[in-house]
Amino acid sequence: MSETSTAAGGISACSITLQLNGQRREVEVYPWTTLLDLLREQLHLTGTKKGCDHGQCGACNVHVNGTVINSCLSLAVMHDGDEITTVEGLSENGELHPIQQAFLDEDAYQCGYCTAGQMMTATYVLNSSHIGDSDDAVREAMSGNICRCGAYKNILAAVQSTRGKV
């Protein structure tokens, strides 16, 4: 990370490097820029959604170094050198990722706004060696991802049907 000459209110932007969806990206961010705003506003990766901006809904969930976090509550500058995966990085070679295919097959969404966050948490949950594989365990682990359309039944089905495929 290095300081640059850009200034806002006397405070400089910083240059950071991310490994973003498999690509090395060098970006300039102000200290107060959240990871979410960096993704959406600066990098136009708008698949990650802002649902509350306060860690209360999970719509902005992304993977940082393989771990799912709320990107609205993280400063972009704190992620210099980190590996970030967003919904745009889920599929490979144009094919839907197994979790995306399962969401399609199970109709695990309605409006689609919480969907990226749901899938990012789901893939983390499926890869976690600690989180159990029962329906109750998955429901509990996914509870930070609100779906106001209430597609919970189908989301659970999609997660469970993806087990072993990611």
Binding site: T67, I69, N70, S143, G144
Partner: peptide, 8 residues
Amino acid sequence: ASTSLRNK
């Protein structure tokens, strides 16, 4: 909290 908040 939640899975993702606990990770942070």
